[in-house]
């Protein structure tokens, strides 16, 4: 993912609202897309996106630049998404959707390959999250590890498991073939 101009980040840290607004404009679609994949709810994704940037503004003074800005921003988005999970779980709304693997209409529109979308919808949250971060946004294992608070080895393993699950769902039955080994 493209990184912002360091000048913008420095200015935003110094309280320059126009610089921060430039960051919002630049990253809001990425954050929204990330949120939409993980919540599968357009309204929730919009709320998460807005909340992410409001929280980012509050804490940008503590951003020290020792990670990519996008990684730092997505870590905030991830926290917002988990807050949304908790909020939705209380309402027994989003959780039901996720467990049922049911995508909302908005999420259904969000990919151009229905079979891939349906396959992704079956992934549990701990597998879906690294797939979205790595396959869609190009984060490294190390960055996802930092974002998720689990080891790089775990991320690598989750990606393998997620891809195996997706391969099982997409296309011919490869398990038989594999079992021949």
């Amino acid at each position: 993912m493209e990184e912002p101009d360091p000048h913008d980040v420095r200015a935003a840290k110094a309280g320059d609202l126009s610089a921060f607004e430039a960051l919002v404009r630049r990253y809001q679609l990425d954050v929204y897309r990330f949120s939409l994949h993980l919540t599968r709810d357009a309204l929730a994704a919009e709320d998460v996106t807005q909340d992410t940037f409001v929280r980012a503004y509050r804490s940008i003074g503590r951003y020290r630049g020792n990670s990519r800005f996008s990684t730092w921003l997505f870590s905030i988005a991830r926290n917002c998404i988990h807050d949304e999970y908790r909020r939705a779980a209380r309402q027994a709304r989003l959780t039901t959707k996720l467990e049922a693997g049911e995508a909302s209409h908005a999420a259904a529109d969000a990919t151009s390959a229905p079979e891939v979308r349906e396959a992704l919808a079956t992934l549990p949250r701990d597998l879906l999250e690294p797939v979205v971060m790595i396959d869609l946004f190009g984060f490294s294992y190390r960055e996802v590890s930092q974002l998720s608070g689990v080891s790089e080895g775990t991320i690598k393993s989750r990606m393998h498991r997620a891809r195996q699950q997706l391969a099982d769902l997409l296309g011919p039955d490869v398990r038989e073939d594999a079992d021949e080994i």
């Binding site: 607004e21 404009r25 809001q28 929204y32 151009s112 891939v116 997409l170 296309g171 490869v174 080994i181």
Partner: peptide
Amino acid sequence: CGGCRHFEATQHLVRQALRLEVLPDAPDVT
């Protein structure tokens, strides 16, 4: 191994599909 080649093709397919995805009306939260 056809199975592993399918695995390889599938992981490319998923990545490509994700990166070709089209968002519905995305909100401007600015």
